[in-house]
Structure formats: C-alpha cells, structure tokens
C-alpha cells in the first residue's frame, strides 16, 4: 500500500516538473530532490557570505568616497543575497544553525573563486566585471528553476547583480583609460582572475556527477560547459573593448560553431582549491568562524532581552 502511495506521489511530482509547475515547500518531493536543493542553495548562500570577504578588505582602501560608497553597497547586497538564499533553503526543512555549522566544519562548500586573494584595487574591478558576470550567467537560468522559493530568491538576486557587474567594468575602464601603470594593474588583475572565473562554472560536464539528475529535475537549465562557453563568447569582446589581452594562447574564433575555442582549465588547480588547498581557504573560514563566535554573546543577549520584555509584557497584561 505504502509503495503505491509513494509511487503516485512521485508521478504527481514528475508531472508537475514536466508541466513547468513550480514545486512549493510543503509539496511532496523525492528525498534526493530535497537533498540536492539543500546542498545547492546552501552552497550558493555560503558563496554570497564568504564572497563579502575578498571585497570587504578593500572598503577602507577604495580610492575615492564614491568608490567606497559603491563597494560598501555591493558588499551589503552580497549579505542580502546570502540571507534570501538561506531563507529559501530553510523552507526545505534545514536550519540556519545547521547550514552555518556545515560551512564552518568544511562539510558544505562555497564557490572556490573566493579562495583567491585581492591583491590590488584592480582586483575589485576584475571581480565585479568577471566574477559577477559569471555569477549572472549562472544565476539568470535559475530564475526558472523548479523550486519556487529558490526561483523567487533568484529574481531578487539577479535584479541587484547587474549593478555589481557594471561597477566592476567601470573600475576596469577607468584603469584602462588611465596611466600605463594603471593599465598594467588592470591587465595583471585580469590575468589573475580569468582562469579562476572559468572554473566557477564547475567541472566539465563529463565529470559533473550531479548535472544529469539536476537537469532532469529542472533545477539546472544548462550544463556547466554550455554556460562556460557562453561566458567566454560574451567576455572576449568586452576585454577587447578595454584593450586587455585574454591570458589564453589557445583562444580563437571558431566560425563554424559561432563561438570561441579556448584552452583547457587547469583542473588540477580547480580540485586542489575545492579540497581546501587554495591560497585563502583557511583564512576565509577562520574569518567566518571568528565573526560567528565573537558575535555569539550579542545573539544570546538579544534573545535574553526579547524574552525578558515578552515576560514583562505578559505579567503586565495579567494584572
């Protein structure tokens, strides 16, 4: 009996997916679908939160008040994006504390791109232009992802993300139109960030174990390689406009496929950073853990204060 019910529930679920009807929090869903979403959404949230760190360290050193205000605003947006996403993940039955514990223990991953250092101001331009550009490429299709709360969170995220990319491009443009030393800074930052950005789309399709099922469930809409190709095709003309050289000797226009051929990502480096051995992995997690632990007394005090006030109010009403 139970298996029959289970089967009809699964059929109803598959039918919704086929008809592009969004799945909502209390709807029945296969356990693996729930797990996949919790993993993907929480990792996405962690990426937003950890993503504040490489840029945050430039807020005090931004070259003008305008740049400082813009960067502050962008970093605040990343915090907001993390919060939209955590709340979407919580609708699947996981808790905020659990997700944060998994980030701190290393069980949950976040985008490896944030394990690279921001050495100069030009890196802030490169991050906005390249990293946020790649994030947009990844995120826009997620507006149509099959899980309702995730899709709705992505609508908000994508609306805000395009300012991030434009401010980065503007920083790059100022540097490229500046003195030779500034142009050089821009090129060096571009060299540093180009390959790690291409890694953001994840492993090659053939080596991405989750892609096939995620595509069937319409959690993902395009494969890693499809998105990587689109990104290269979009960015090369922008780099040319800036007068920057793409650090890839194999980059070549391919008329037949109406896109660029490009060199292979250094997958050894990719897996090495994923496994925790990138230049900043330890530093990033230590910073998060420290902030969390040092903030514990504030969270406890706020809760104690709220409870005390609620008790006082209840006592007053009882009088």
């Amino acid at each position: 009996m139970e298996t029959i019910i289970e089967k009809s529930l699964e059929e109803a679920f598959e039918e919704k997916i086929a008809k592009e009807i969004r799945i909502e929090p209390k709807d029945w869903m296969p356990e693996q679908y729930r797990k996949t979403l919790v993993r993907q959404i929480s990792q996405h949230a962690h990426s937003e939160i950890v993503g504040m760190l490489p840029e945050g360290n430039w807020i005090t050193r931004a070259p003008s008040l305008k740049r400082k205000a813009i960067l502050l605003s962008k970093v605040q947006d990343e915090a907001g994006h993390g919060l939209y996403l955590y709340s979407a993940a919580e609708t699947l039955g996981t808790s905020r504390d659990q997700m944060i514990a998994d980030l701190h223990s290393g069980k949950a991953k976040y985008s490896s791109i944030f394990n690279y250092p921001t050495l100069s101001w030009a890196d802030i331009g490169a991050i906005g232009w390249l990293v946020d550009g790649a994030a947009i490429m990844n995120q826009v299709p997620l507006i149509r992802t099959s899980y309702g709360p995730y899709a709705r969170a992505m609508v908000r995220v994508c609306k805000e993300e395009s300012f991030h990319q434009r401010q980065g491009f503007e920083i790059m443009m100022s540097l490229c139109n500046g003195a030779p030393a500034q142009k050089k800074m821009a090129q060096e930052a571009f060299n540093r960030w180009w390959w790690p950005t291409l890694m953001m789309f994840g492993p090659k399709d053939a080596e991405s174990p989750n892609t096939e099922q995620s595509m069937r469930w319409k959690i993902k809409r395009f494969t890693n390689d499809e998105l990587r190709q689109r990104f290269v095709d979009m960015m090369v003309p922008q780099a040319e406009f800036l007068g920057l050289t793409v650090p890839d000797k194999d980059l070549k226009w391919n008329e037949a496929k109406n896109g660029y051929d490009f060199g292979d990502v250094d997958w050894e480096e990719f897996w090495n950073v994923v496994k925790g051995n990138g230049p900043c992995n330890k530093d990033r997690i230590n910073t998060r853990v420290k902030a969390y632990e040092e903030g514990a007394w504030v969270r406890e005090a706020a809760l104690a204060h709220a409870q005390k006030r609620a008790a006082r109010e209840a006592a007053n009403q009882a009088k």
Binding site: L83, S87, A88, R96, P149, A153, L303, H305, A306, A310
Partner: peptide, 11 residues
C-alpha cells in the same frame, strides 16, 4: 517577500 531571523518584532 521571504523570511528572516530576529530576536523580536522590532528587530
């Protein structure tokens, strides 16, 4: 529009 955590209504 979504949800969030806070100690009390004001926060």
């Amino acid at each position: 529009v979504g949800s969030l955590h806070a100690a009390d209504a004001e926060m």
